[in-house]
Write a protein that binds this DNA or RNA. Structure first.
Lengths: 332, 332
DNA sequence: TGACGCCATTGAAACGATTCAATGAGTAAG
DNA sequence: CTTACTCATTGAATCGTTTCAATGGCGTCA
C-alpha cells in the first residue's frame, strides 16, 4: 500500500541504513547519495512511518490534551497556546474531550497510555490524580491545568482565583459601590469558592461595604437570568448597587434580565463585573468588565513544563499560579 | 520503565506467544494458563504497547478529526457524535484544531499520515482535496464534513443549506410576513450563499413578498448588531417585518440591537429567525427560532462511512446530505 | 500397540524504522 | 610500499507486538 524505507533503499540502490541516515543525519552521507535517495523518496511518495519510528525510539513526539469541555472558549484558547508552543518544540498536540464524564476521561487515559504519548495535559474532571501518578511511574508525565494538584505530587498551571475575586470586588468598591452581590454556584466548585473568598477578603478595611450571596445551581446564562429577574423585583433601596458574577455567562444572563425589564440600567443603577473575559464579553449589549485569565499563556506554560518533565522525569513537580487581570469596560 | 509482554511471559513462565493469545484469543489458551498470565499482567502493571501492536497489525484504531474552529458549538457537537459512534466500534477519536490556518491544517495532515491513523474526518479550511485523495491512495480514507466534495471523489456528510434557507423563509411567509430581510455574509461562503438561494426559492409563488439583502462582513454577533442598529433607524413603514439571519450569532446581534433601543419588539414588530440552533439560542433574551442541523448525527454518520471505507477501500464515495429542521420559538 | 487427531503451547518470522559495529575504499604519512 | 586513518556505506540487532507453522502430550479407536 505505502512504500517503506526498504523500497526506497531498493529504488536508490543503497541499504536501508543509508536511507535512514539521509532522513536523520544527512551530514553522514555523501551529497550525491543524498540526492539519489531523496529522488527515490519523492518518486515513491514515501512517508516515514511514525509508528515504527517510535517503537524503536521508545519515545513519542505527540502530547495529549484532555479537557472537560471542548466547547468552553477558555479551553480552546488554552489549547491554542499549547499548540503554538508544541509547534515551536517540534511536537504535536492531539485533543480529547471528556465531555464531563469520568468514563470517557478514563478511556482516554487508557488510550494515551497504550499509545505511549510523550505526556498528558489535563483539566481533570473526575478524581484522576492516583491514575496520573501511576502514569508517571510508567514514564508518562502529566500537568494539571486550571486546577492545582491536591497531593502536591503533580505539576500544575492554574490561576489565583482568590486574587481574582479580590481584584473584582476591590474595583467595585473603588468605583464607589457599597452593597455588593456575588452571583454564582455551586459553592463547592473550587473555582467559584475561591472567587467568593477573594470577594470577602476585599471587604476587609471597608466596614461600610456589604456583600450578599445569590446562589445559583450552575454557572450558566439561564441561571444568571433567573437571579437577574429576582433582583429586578427587589426594592431599589434594598437591592445591591453592584454585582460580581462567578463567570461571564452568569453576568450575561444578569444583563439580559435587566435589559428585558428595562427597569435597571447598567452600570448606572447596578455595576456588573464577570469572570473569564470570554470572546463574547466585549460585544455584549453593555460591554462587560471582566477578570481575564491568561488562557493561552497557561497552555503554553503547561506544555513547557510537560516537555521538560518528559526529558527529565526526576524533576520535582512545579506549581505555577498565574495572576488574573482586570479588564475594565462599560459595565462598571 | 514499563513492562513488556516478554516480562509478563517470564513472570508467568510461558512464552510470549501465549501471552499474546491470552490478550487476543483467550479461547485458544487453557483456563489455568489464562489465570496465571492475567495475574502476571496485574502484578507487573503491564499495558499493551499500541505502537508495536499497530506496527505489526498495519492498521490503527484511532480516527483523526480535524476541524476549522474547535470553539464553534456546531463542531463540538459533531465531535461528540463521532466519539459516541467510535466508542461503539471500539475506535478512538483524536482531534486537531486547524484554527483557520492552512498551514496548521497541512501539518496536522502530515502528522496523521505519519501516524498512519485509520482515517480522517475533516471540515476543510483550505483547498485540501488533492491532498486527501493522495492520502486515500496511501491507504488512509477521509470523509468531509459540512462540505461536499468538489471533485465528487470523496465521501461527505453535509446539510442541505438551500432547503434550510427555504424552510426558514417559508416559515416567515406562513406566519404572515411580507417584507423579509436576509442578513449575512460574505456571500461567497458556500453555506451563506446556499441559505440565501433557498430564501429566494421560497419566494416563488408569493409575488406579494419581497426580499432584501443586508450584507455583513462576517457572521458574527458584532456584525449582526451593526446591521440591527442600521435597521432600527429605518422608517417603520420601510423596514422589513421579518429577518432571516445567516446564523444564530448574527441573529443574536440583531436581537441585542433591538433590545438596546427598545424601539423594535421581537416578534411583534419584526420576526427573527436564525440558523444552527446553537445552545445559546433557546436562552436568548427572546428565545430564538432557528434551523437545526443534526450535528451529532452528522458526526456519527461520517464516522460510520469512514470506518466502512477503512475496511474496504474500493467502495465508491458516498455523499450524504441531511435535511435541516425548523425549531420554532418565541422570536417568530 | 500403533495410527490418528486434538489441543495447548512454543519459537521464529515479520512489521518499519534506528543504531552501531564492521567493512571497504580511498588518501595521507612515514 | 606499508601503515594509519578518514569517510561513506552496509548488515544485523533491536524495539514490542502478532501470527502461524511446528512441536509434543494426551486420549481415542481399531
Amino acid at each position: 500500500m505505502s512504500a517503506s524505507i526498504k523500497d526506497v533503499a531498493a529504488q536508490a540502490g543503497v541499504s536501508v541504513g543509508t536511507v535512514s541516515n539521509v532522513l536523520n543525519h544527512p551530514d553522514r552521507v555523501s551529497p550525491e547519495t543524498v540526492d539519489r535517495v531523496r529522488g527515490a523518496i519523492k518518486d515513491l511518495g514515501f512517508v516515514r512511518n511514525d509508528v515504527a519510528r517510535h517503537l524503536r525510539a521508545g519515545e513519542s513526539r505527540t502530547i495529549a490534551l484532555l479537557v472537560m469541555d471542548a466547547a468552553n472558549p477558555f479551553f480552546t484558547d488554552l489549547a491554542k497556546g499549547a499548540e503554538d508552543e508544541a509547534t515551536n518544540l517540534g511536537l504535536s498536540v492531539v485533543m480529547g474531550n471528556t465531555a464531563e464524564t469520568s468514563e470517557r476521561e478514563n478511556s482516554y487515559l487508557d488510550l494515551f497510555e497504550e499509545q505511549r504519548v510523550r505526556g498528558v495535559l489535563i483539566s481533570p474532571y473526575g478524581d484522576v490524580e492516583e491514575r496520573l501518578l501511576q502514569l508517571k511511574q510508567f514514564g508518562i508525565p502529566s500537568v494539571l491545568v486550571d486546577r492545582a494538584s491536591s497531593s502536591g505530587k503533580l505539576s500544575s498551571v492554574s490561576v489565583d482565583d482568590v486574587a481574582g475575586g479580590k481584584t473584582a470586588v476591590t474595583h467595585l468598591i473603588e468605583s464607589g459601590r457599597t452593597t455588593i452581590g456575588f452571583v454564582g454556584g455551586g459553592l463547592d466548585v473550587p473555582q467559584v469558592r475561591d472567587r467568593l473568598q477573594g470577594a470577602r477578603e476585599a471587604l476587609k478595611g471597608h466596614p461600610a461595604v456589604s456583600l450578599e450571596v445569590f446562589e445559583t445551581a450552575a454557572t450558566t446564562v439561564l441561571e444568571g437570568r433567573r437571579v437577574g429577574e429576582q433582583i429586578s423585583q427587589m426594592n431599589p433601596n434594598e437591592r445591591p448597587d453592584a454585582l460580581f458574577a462567578a463567570n461571564d455567562l452568569v453576568a450575561i444572563g444578569l444583563l439580559q434580565a435587566f435589559m428585558a425589564t428595562a427597569a435597571i440600567r447598567v452600570p448606572d443603577d447596578i455595576a456588573l463585573i464577570g469572570y473569564d473575559d470570554i470572546d463574547f464579553s466585549p460585544s455584549a449589549i453593555v460591554p462587560l468588565t471582566s477578570i481575564r485569565q491568561p488562557s493561552r499563556l497557561m497552555g503554553q506554560t503547561a506544555l513547557e513544563i510537560l516537555n521538560s518533565e518528559a526529558q527529565d522525569s526526576t524533576q520535582p513537580p512545579q506549581e505555577v499560579v498565574f495572576q488574573p487581570e482586570l479588564v475594565v469596560r462599560a459595565s462598571t
